[in-house]
Computed example of a mutant assay.
Amino acid sequence: MRELTYYVAVSLDGYIAGPNGEFDTFLATGDHMGPIWSRYRGTAPTQLAEAAGLSVADGPFDTVLMGRNTYAVGLPHLPDPYQHLRQLVFTSTPAHRPEGSDAVEFTSADPVATVRALKREEGRGIWLCGGGALAGTLIDEIDRLALKINPVVLGGGISLFGPAEYSPTAWKPTGTQAFESGVILAEYARV
Rank of each mutant, 00 (worst) to 15 (best):
L128M: 01
A103Y: 07
P94C: 12
D58Q: 00
L88F: 07
K119G: 03
W127R: 02
Y71H: 00
V104M: 13
D110T: 00
A109G: 14
A49K: 06
D80M: 05
P60S: 13
L147P: 05
I126E: 09
K148Q: 14
R120C: 09
D62K: 04
E105Y: 00
G53F: 15
R68D: 10
M66D: 01
L88W: 08
G130A: 13
G131A: 12
V89I: 02
V112Q: 07
V89W: 06
V56L: 05
G132H: 07
G125V: 03
R144L: 11
A51R: 03
A52H: 02
S108Q: 10
N150W: 09
L128G: 03
K148E: 11
H96L: 15
E105I: 12
Y82I: 00
G156A: 09
G125M: 02
R124L: 09
L78I: 10
V112E: 07
D58C: 05
S92R: 02
R97W: 10
A135W: 06
V73F: 07
A49G: 07
L54W: 15
P111L: 03
D80T: 08
S92K: 09
I139W: 03
K119N: 04
K148G: 10
V115Q: 00
R86V: 14
L78E: 06
N150V: 13
L134Q: 01
G74V: 13
P60M: 07
L145Y: 05
A103N: 15
Y71M: 10
I139G: 00
L118N: 11
V115M: 07
Q83A: 15
H84V: 04
A51W: 12
E141V: 01
R86W: 11
G155S: 03
V115G: 06
A51D: 04
P79H: 04
G123H: 15
G130F: 04
L85N: 03
P94A: 03
K119S: 05
G74Q: 05
V152I: 15
G132K: 08
L118D: 07
E105S: 06
A72Q: 11
L78Q: 02
A117E: 12
Q83E: 15
S55K: 11
L85V: 04
T63N: 14
P81F: 08
F90C: 04
D62T: 09
I149T: 10
G156Q: 11
G155T: 04
V73T: 05
S92I: 03
E50Y: 08
E122M: 05
Q87L: 12
D143E: 13
G125R: 07
Q87P: 11
P76K: 12
W127Q: 11
S92N: 15
L118E: 01
